[in-house]
């Protein structure tokens, strides 16, 4: 109850430090989710619709990615982007630096795109296979056919995006490793919760946890509302 009271107090007080953490949390997870969906939805649709020689191998790799520990992905991204790593040595604006929100976005994208792709693939495979042939018979191009199938599987596709969002909004290991939890720069809700717990500020940590839960709930409800009546059918 103390955590809930403090959460409400923090929200009502419009604490700028809190809103900065919330803003960065959504910025990092939002951008990561955008890129995860950009990669994951077409990949999932492709794997769901096309048959090719190495398909089982690719799907096995995808399933492995779905269960990959985020902290290991954080370690991988850390090694890639560190000064001694292969990407860290390259000078250029396109390569994100360690301990920046961009590095956190890269890690979160890698964490969530297999989930988006995997659930999208399952949703697409759930669409009646003969439908594709009937759509093509109406004169659809391969792209139009794929789009129509994705639209038929849209409930599952939205679930895939929600699953991807859930995997990164609650993620702490990777963002801690590559972001460093720097106040005002890379501190997000999950890393702030870890920090406050370690400091013994359990009420504040609980309050941040409740805010994270509430915001996650609002985002999921928004995504479902965007789908209109599809969920009720």
């Amino acid at each position: 109850m103390g955590g809930l009271r403090q959460a409400l107090t923090l929200i009502l007080r419009h604490d700028p430090a809190l809103w900065e953490i919330v803003r960065l949390t959504f910025e990092v997870s939002g951008v990561a989710l955008f890129f995860s969906s950009l990669i994951g939805i077409p990949l999932g649709a492709f794997l769901g619709m096309r048959r090719f020689r190495a398909r089982r191998l690719v799907i096995s790799a995808l399933y492995t990615g779905m269960g990959f520990p985020p902290v290991v992905i954080g370690l991988l991204v850390y090694m890639l982007l560190s000064r001694s790593g292969p990407l860290g040595q390259i000078e250029g604006d396109l390569i994100p630096r360690l301990f920046t929100p961009a590095a956190m976005m890269v890690a979160q994208t890698i964490i969530s795109f297999p989930l988006v792709a995997g659930f999208t693939m399952a949703a697409v495979m759930g669409v009646e296979p003969h439908l594709r042939q009937q759509i093509r018979a109406l004169g659809a191009t391969p792209m139009q056919t794929a789009w129509a199938v994705l639209m038929e599987a849209r409930v599952g596709v939205v679930v895939s995006v929600i699953a991807g969002f859930g995997s990164i909004i609650s993620e702490v290991g990777a963002v801690m490793l590559v972001g460093g939890n720097i106040v005002g720069r890379t501190r997000v809700l999950t890393t702030a919760i870890v920090l406050e717990t370690r400091k013994g500020n359990f009420e504040l940590a609980s309050a941040l946890g409740i805010i994270l839960l509430g915001l996650s709930f609002i985002v999921n409800v928004t995504m479902m509302l965007m789908q209109g009546k599809s969920f009720d059918q």
Partner: peptide, 25 residues
């Protein structure tokens, strides 16, 4: 075009289904 033995309709209205091929064109 083909009319199949087991027609599969898209998850939209009847007129949306009939209009689908026209929209593609």
């Amino acid at each position: 075009t083909t009319v199949f033995q087991r027609p599969l309709l898209l998850n939209r209205s009847v007129q949306g289904n009939v209009a689908y091929g026209l929209r593609l064109r």
